[in-house]
Amino acid sequence: MSKNLESLSEMAMVLNKKKRSRLNYIKKNYLLYLFLAPAVILVFTFNYVPMYGVLIAFKDFSVARGIMGSEWVGFEHFRSFLTSPNFYQIFMNTIKLSTFELLIGFPVPVILAIMLNQVRKSSIKKNIQLVIYAPYFISTVVLAGMVFIFLSPSGPINSLLTIFINNPISFMSDPDYFRTVFIASGIWQGAGFASIVYVAALSNTDPQLHDAATIDGASLLQRIWHIDFQVLKPVMAVLFILSIGGIMSIGFEKAYLLQTSMNLPASEIIDTYVYKRGLIAGDWSFGAAVGLFNTIIGLILLVTANTVVKKLKGETLY
């Protein structure tokens, strides 16, 4: 009994020492915490405080009665969405579009970074980076306008295709082409900028590793696989997990701007559906319920991907 009491008292003393050391550290570096305070306040204000509004997903929300005064309906809006005739089509459009974009678009920045790492002349490398980074700074509205111009029946793409085919292709009216157009435009716009992280990771690679591998007779592809790719693996794992978490949020703006009445069977996703039902139609409770459903699916995918990568002994978020 006395030994147990002694061990408990020792644990209490250790905990007290840790608390005192933390308090002393905070007092000593209080300026760092003051610099951090604005970011914490912004995140709390714009990310956590609005979570109170999620309550309207479980209520028949009325502006006149307010959130607390509105009638509680439970999971009625979720049930209505899951049993709606177009639920399967909207859900599958979201899954297909985001999955194909992830599978096709994720390796492209890695390949660009490895290719840039092989360019030894700094002036040429900077010019290439300028060209591939520039599309990222084009607004989504301008990008959508460029897509419509280039892919119109009288646009430059169809002008080239008429050399091989007789009739122009209606890219923006045919649902079969929507996913290709959406994914290709996304890769063109974002792949270059996304490669910055990988380029930064490769810049820390010890050049002596490549020199030693070259002396041992390793080819370029072997050096890329056994050195560069191994350096990028932890970064790729973390970014892939984050991409899995955002698989349900593929971007409302571009999907809505590229959407037409003809390609609606392929372009109607959860985000555009929430906008139409929640804001345009004024059904705020239903829109909030669909948005919450979308967020929960994304959270489940994020946790699942992190767990799988952890079991594979890769780099994880937590």
Rank of each mutant, 00 (worst) to 15 (best):
N263Q: 12
P85S: 13
N29A: 05
W284R: 00
K19H: 12
F252L: 14
L258G: 07
Y177F: 11
M13W: 04
I26F: 05
A218W: 01
I149N: 13
A39Q: 11
Y275F: 09
M236R: 02
V308F: 15
L257R: 07
K17C: 02
V181T: 12
T260I: 14
E268S: 12
K313F: 11
F137S: 10
P175D: 03
A134W: 11
N204R: 07
K310S: 09
A201I: 10
E315Y: 06
Q129Y: 02
M172N: 12
I300E: 14
P50A: 04
F286K: 00
F171W: 03
N29G: 02
S84I: 05
M11P: 00
K125W: 02
D211G: 02
F46A: 12
P175E: 02
K310P: 02
S98K: 04
S219A: 07
G298Y: 01
A255I: 14
V40L: 14
I26W: 02
L42M: 12
T94V: 07
A201K: 09
L112P: 01
E101C: 03
A255Y: 11
F148T: 06
F171M: 08
K28A: 08
P85G: 08
F171S: 15
A213L: 05
Q89C: 00
I227P: 07
H77Y: 00
V54R: 00
S249M: 08
N24M: 09
I128W: 07
H226M: 09
L15T: 06
L317C: 10
N29V: 07
K311Q: 11
E6T: 14
Q222M: 15
F171P: 14
S84T: 02
N24P: 02
V40A: 13
V73H: 00
S159K: 01
S267Q: 03
Q89D: 09
V309N: 05
F78G: 02
A144T: 06
E6V: 13
S122M: 06
A37S: 12
A191T: 05
L34R: 13
V147H: 05
G192V: 08
I269F: 04
K126M: 06
V141H: 07
S195V: 05
K126S: 09
D271M: 06
S152A: 14
G74K: 00
S185T: 15
I95D: 08
L264T: 06
N4W: 13
I224A: 14
F81H: 02
K19Y: 15
F78C: 03
L55Y: 00
A200D: 10
F91D: 11
S98T: 08
L279W: 13
H210C: 03
T316G: 15
L55R: 00
T295Q: 11
N306L: 08
Q129P: 04
V303C: 04
T295V: 14
A218D: 01
I90C: 03
Y25S: 03
Q222R: 13
G246S: 06
A288P: 04
T99C: 08
V308W: 11
K59C: 00
K310E: 12
P234H: 06
R22A: 14
G282M: 01
T83L: 04
M1W: 12
R223Q: 12
G53D: 11
T295C: 15
I67T: 06
G278Q: 00
P135Q: 09
T162A: 10
L116D: 07
A194V: 06
K3P: 04
M92Q: 08
P38A: 10
S70K: 05
S185Y: 04
K233E: 01
V142P: 07
F137G: 15
I56C: 00
I138N: 12
D176R: 07
